[in-house]
């Protein structure tokens, strides 16, 4: 049986990609942020996962308002990144997955989730910045990535509780797959931030810490929040907690936290990092 060995929550801020492009990791602004990553990279190097299931959100590279899926899942052999107008250098192609991904799609639809199924999508910084962070030097090519995209741009967005349930359904689908893949799940984005309006710049690191605490041993406690609640408490883009909830939902058993970091501000955002082991 395929196994989800762990989950990683991480920020995906475009400025991180630019900082890596420019080699700024050790500068005063960035060093505390990048200092969080070596333990997670080392864990990945030890564990050597075969597949990454990657919860991310598209910020207007592939999924414009003309056709905007609420949930989308990729079943493609390869994904490409492209110029998205945010000044990040595109990264080399990402290897996809075409077997387990279709099994997940079958199981999701059988269990009343109806995602958009994608065989050719460009992936943006929401997916690429975390890969660059976790695999410096673009050393991710041996790993197969299954993208799961959540609309975090235009309301109505899926309820946070629904994204957690989507994660649970994906976790069950993986458990029913007769393969020996070892899988890591990423949930990227957040944590508290707001880019737009007179309220731009609000952060709420107390809430971010509460979320990271609850993600370990009581994720259901976070499901009471609506997207309007998250906007009020954690800023307009605080709704990106959805991806962390999806990630956590895939892990059914007891979860142990191996590592955490929270640095703010990075760009306009509180940048979280969390490594959870699925025991």
């Amino acid at each position: 049986m395929a196994k989800i060995i762990g989950g990683i929550g991480t920020s995906h801020i475009p400025a991180i990609g630019r900082a890596m492009d420019q080699g700024l990791e050790d500068t005063p602004y960035w060093k505390d942020f990048f200092a969080g990553y070596p333990p997670v990279r080392e864990w990945l190097a030890e564990q050597k996962p075969d597949v990454i299931i990657h919860f991310y959100n598209d910020h207007g590279l592939e999924m414009f308002l003309d056709k905007k899926p609420t949930y989308a899942i990729g079943c493609a052999p390869q994904y490409e990144n492209a110029d998205e107008g945010w000044g990040i250098q595109p990264i080399p192609p990402i290897t996809g997955e075409t077997e387990l991904s279709w099994h997940i799609v079958n199981e999701l639809i059988e269990n009343d989730f109806d995602p958009t199924v994608c065989q050719d999508i460009k992936v943006d910084h929401g997916l690429t910045v975390p890969l660059s962070l976790l695999y410096p030097g673009h050393t991710y090519q041996g790993i197969k990535v299954i993208p799961v995209c959540i609309n975090c741009e235009r309301h109505p967005m899926p309820k946070p509780s629904r994204s957690f349930a989507l994660g649970q359904a994906i976790g069950k689908a993986v458990e029913s797959w007769d393969g020996d893949e070892r899988i890591v799940v990423l949930g990227t984005g957040g944590l508290s931030h707001q880019l737009d309006g007179e309220r731009a710049g609000i952060l709420n690191t107390d809430f971010d810490i509460e979320c990271m605490d609850k993600l370990v041993d009581d994720p259901e406690a976070l499901l009471k929040y609506s997207n309007e609640d998250l906007t009020e408490i954690a800023g307009g883009q605080g709704v990106e907690l959805a991806m962390w909830l999806g990630m956590r939902g895939t892990m059914h058993g007891k979860v142990r936290e191996l590592h955490r970091n929270l640095v703010a501000p990075i760009s306009n955002t509180a940048a979280g990092l969390q490594l959870l082991l699925n025991e």
Binding site: D32, R199, G201, I202, A264, P265, A270
Partner: peptide
Amino acid sequence: QTGRTTEEFQAYLDSQGVGK
């Protein structure tokens, strides 16, 4: 958007910072 200079906006962000 907030009627601040970029430096003032950065200072506002920093005033809520952690971990640095």
